[in-house]
Design a binder for these strands. Structure first.
Lengths: 244, 244
DNA sequence: TCCTTAATAGTCATTCTGACTATAAAGGAG
DNA sequence: CTCCTTTATAGTCAGAATGACTATTAAGGA
């Protein structure tokens, strides 16, 4: 911030703002984009599904709060979760977005590989994966947040190497292509996709010397790991125009 | 937000969060990128320069607060300012970013055409344009915010038609190219830039029939207005790698 | 032993881009 | 008035990148 506080400012009397984080946790499973949702147990929107999230604690940054919530909702350790891609999306601050009080929420998008069904170790034991395209009406403004998150991820796949964040440590180019096709909702030409990925320095690197069979049928595919590059130059553009 | 409030939650007792907005207001002037700064009059960082900003009011969204501050600091009416490009950058929430109390700040970037020297109608009468590349150490974490804002704008010029936001209603292609060169800090080939802009449908549209002379010397340039397009497909990539 | 499936290797034309060269239309210096 | 400089605009050409295809290879299953 930068403006001077109002004269005689008393934090406890002036700003009844609560600050929360909301998480859009995405994964690719069965060729469909999934998002982690929790069922609300308390009154505003009780029974509705919502993005996982929670309050930012007094001595914690929003980033830390998001990482903490991610661990709680997925039931994984903070150590495991620290390897996942987590990025700030934007902040939602409409005065009426929460009927109870003034809540400003910093939204994050997380990209995780296909995980086992979440065993909620945190407060929301009812966390569950939902298809990201048809998750009924969510609580609060979470439909909007989810849509924004989906848009952002789709756009970032174009000019970053982010897609590998959806994959396990070792993956095939077919799996990587699936990520693009799933998030964008389009089909890509396989040879062209290969060429683009393999000629972009640092996007992926081949694993020593071991192919594996995917579903069993077809020629075994070579395995790759995520490379050191983060940006994609030139970008891998979506077929049509923008947005999904 | 989504998590349920802690049991027995009392907004006034629990969360002494203040929420502010900070603005990185950019303009291109004399072939250099400028940013609007204000001199702090009160104690934390008194005498330092800072990004303009202020508290989000109890019944106001961060977006509205940013628009309001933009009008105050530039000394223009809200009506005038509503035409300027204003976009949310990201939110800064480090617990110690303000020594006085817990302040979460939503940062915005604004792009304005070359304006007359600001006559601060608001609280900070000392608003002034500074070269965006060398604005000494700023108050709080504003150096970081400014750097992030510069990066974001530079990146958006690649795949959006945003550059016209820096130009007056009617402009020459030379002026538009100046925007790119100034923000990116590189020189572009003029014929190639022309070709790219003119062949991108909706980027610019020619004004009826009237050239004008720029500085006086040289062949008069044709005038254009911003077109209807917002995205740039394919993008106009920077010469080298990413970031500035 | 065929058939199907999926991975991988190429080809070819089109588009886009970067690096240039050429021409046109102003103002300024002599 | 005539060069000279400056800036806008037109056009050329080779190389890179992309989209649309056509093989070929290596599995599993009927």
């Amino acid at each position: 911030m930068s403006a001077d506080a109002p004269a005689g400012y008393d934090p406890h009397a002036f700003a009844p703002f609560a600050v929360t984080v909301d998480l859009a946790v995405f994964t690719v499973r069965d060729s469909r984009l999934h998002v982690l949702l929790v069922e609300r147990g308390a009154d505003p929107y009780k029974g509705h599904w919502a993005l996982p999230g929670g309050f930012v604690l007094p001595r914690e940054s929003a980033e830390s709060a998001a990482r903490r919530e991610l661990a709680e909702e997925t039931g994984l350790t903070e150590g495991t979760v620290s390897a996942f891609h987590l990025e700030q999306l934007r902040t939602y601050s409409d005065p009426d977005r929460d009927p109870r009080m003034r809540v400003v929420s910093v939204a994050y998008a997380a990209l995780v590989p296909d995980l086992p069904e979440p065993r909620g170790g945190g407060d929301a034991a009812s966390a569950q994966w939902w298809d990201a395209k048809t998750p009924g009406p969510l609580a609060f403004d979470h439909d909007r947040i989810l849509a924004d998150a989906h848009d952002r991820i789709g756009a970032k796949l174009e000019y970053s190497c982010l897609a590998t964040a959806f994959c396990p440590p070792e993956f095939t180019l077919g799996e990587l292509q699936q990520v693009y096709e799933t998030v964008w909702g389009v089909e890509l030409d396989r040879p062209n996709f290969r060429r683009k990925v393999l000629t972009t320095p640092g996007f992926v690197q081949a694993v020593a010397g071991s192919p594996r069979r995917t579903g069993g049928r077809g020629k075994p595919a070579a395995l790759y790991r995520a490379g050191a590059a983060t940006a994609l130059h030139p970008p891998l553009l979506r077929p049509e125009g923008r947005s999904t």
